[in-house]
C-alpha cells in the first residue's frame, strides 16, 4: 500500500478540473434548490448547451472561442426561460420532470447522427481550445512538489477554474445577503406567503432559474476545456445527481457548501477507488479474492459513496456547513 501516492492522487482530484466542474454546477444548483427551492434535475442540460455552443462555434463555424462563450451564456438564458415559462407557475415537481427530460433531449440531440456535421455525434468535438491554451502563462508542470503536480495546461485550467469559483461564490454571497436573496429564501419557505406580501414570485423564480443556469454554463465551459474535448457522455443525468451529492455534502443554502462538498466528494471518490484497487492487487492482497476481485474493486467505491450519502442524510442532513438549528424546525 502506497499511502502517500494514494493521498496525493486523491488531493489532485479533489483540487483538480473535475472538482471545479462539479463545484460550479453545484453552485448553480445551490441557487436553484438551496435558496429558492426549485428542483432542477437538468443541470447537465444547461452545461451541455453552454459547452457545445462554445465548442461548435469554433470547430463547426470557425469563429472565435470568446464568441462561443457569449453564445453559450445567451443560449443558457434562453433555455432557462424556455423551461421556466410553462413550469414555474406550477408546483415544484413539474420543473423537476421538465428539466430532467430537457437535459436528456439535449444530450440525445447533440449526439444524434443527423447533426453529426455540427456536433460530431457520439465522438463529440475536439481541438477548439487553441485560443484558451494560447493564454496559458505556465510552460512547465506546476504544483506543490511531492503533493500535487499538474501539467501546464491542466494547471491553467485549474487556475482559471478556481478563479471562476471564487467569483461565483462572491456573486452568490452578495446576492443572498441582499433583500433580493431574502425574497428567494422566502419563496423556498412559502410561495403564497410571499405572494400575499406583494412580491412577484414568478419573476423571482425565473431570475433564480436563469442565474443558477448561468453557473451551470460555467461548469459546461470548464467541462469542455478540461479535456479539450466535448462529448454527449459528459452530460449524462448522473452529472446532475453527482452535483446534487456535492451540494448536499457541503450543505445547501451555504455559500461555500458546494466548494467544500466538491473537494471532499472527489477526494473521497478517488481515495476509495485507489484504496480498493491496491488492496485487491498483487500476489497476496489485503482483501482476499474470495471477498473482492480487482474488477469488483472499481465499482465498490460507488457503493461506499451511496452508503456515505445515506449516513450523511441520517446523521448530518444539513451537510458539513449547514445550520443544525434550521433542521430542528419542522417545515410548516
Amino acid at each position: 500500500m502506497d499511502w502517500q501516492d494514494m493521498l496525493s492522487s486523491s488531493l489532485q482530484q479533489g483540487l483538480g478540473p473535475t472538482a471545479i466542474v462539479y463545484c460550479l454546477a453545484a453552485i448553480g444548483l445551490n441557487v436553484h434548490f438551496g435558496y429558492t427551492g426549485l428542483l432542477n434535475f437538468g443541470q447537465a442540460g444547461f452545461m451541455a448547451v453552454a459547452g457545445y455552443s462554445m465548442a461548435s462555434i469554433v470547430t463547426t463555424w470557425g469563429l472565435s472561442l470568446w464568441l462561443g462563450v457569449a453564445v453559450g451564456l445567451l443560449l443558457t438564458v434562453g433555455l432557462a426561460l424556455l423551461l421556466g415559462v410553462p413550469t414555474l407557475r406550477l408546483r415544484a415537481d413539474y420543473l423537476a420532470i421538465v428539466t430532467i427530460a430537457a437535459a436528456e433531449i439535449i444530450r440525445q440531440v447533440v449526439g444524434s447522427v443527423s447533426l453529426l456535421k455540427y456536433f460530431g455525434g457520439l465522438d463529440g468535438l475536439q481541438a477548439f481550445n487553441a485560443q484558451f491554451a494560447a493564454l496559458n502563462p505556465f510552460d512547465k508542470p506546476t504544483g506543490i512538489d511531492g503533493v500535487v503536480m499538474w501539467r501546464p495546461y491542466d494547471f491553467w485550467v485549474v487556475v482559471v477554474g478556481w478563479t471562476l469559483v471564487v467569483i461565483s461564490c462572491l456573486i452568490v454571497f452578495l446576492l443572498m445577503r441582499s433583500p433580493w436573496g431574502r425574497v428567494l429564501k422566502s419563496i423556498r419557505e412559502d410561495e403564497d406567503a410571499v405572494r400575499s406580501l406583494g412580491k412577484n414570485v414568478y419573476s423571482y423564480k425565473m431570475q433564480s432559474l436563469v442565474i443558477g443556469g448561468l453557473f451551470g454554463a460555467l461548469a459546461g465551459f470548464m467541462t469542455a476545456l478540461r479535456n479539450a474535448a466535448i462529448s454527449p457522455a459528459g452530460f449524462a443525468t448522473d452529472v446532475t445527481f453527482f452535483a446534487y451529492a456535492v451540494l448536499l455534502l457541503g450543505g445547501a443554502a451555504r455559500v461555500l457548501g458546494p466548494v467544500v462538498g466538491s473537494i471532499i466528494f472527489w477526494f473521497m471518490l478517488t481515495f476509495l477507488d485507489l484504496f480498493f484497487s491496491q488492496a485487491t492487487r498483487g500476489a497476496d492482497p489485503l482483501i482476499p479474492a474470495s471477498i473482492m476481485t480487482t474488477s469488483q474493486a472499481s465499482l465498490i467505491r460507488l457503493i461506499f459513496l451511496g452508503l456515505a450519502l445515506m449516513l450523511l442524510m441520517i446523521y448530518r442532513p444539513q451537510g458539513i456547513f449547514g445550520d443544525r438549528r434550521e433542521l430542528a424546525i419542522d417545515a410548516r
Binding site: 431574502r182 412580491k199 431570475q207
Partner: peptide, 26 residues
C-alpha cells in the same frame, strides 16, 4: 417563513425595496 428569523419575516413585508431588484441587490 420557518427558516427565516422573525426580523427577516418582517423585513420581507416592506414594499418598494430597491434591494429586491436583481441589478441593485449586489
Amino acid at each position: 417563513l420557518a427558516r427565516l428569523t422573525v426580523m427577516e419575516n418582517m423585513r420581507i413585508g416592506a414594499t418598494g425595496q430597491s434591494g429586491e431588484s436583481l441589478w441593485q441587490a449586489m
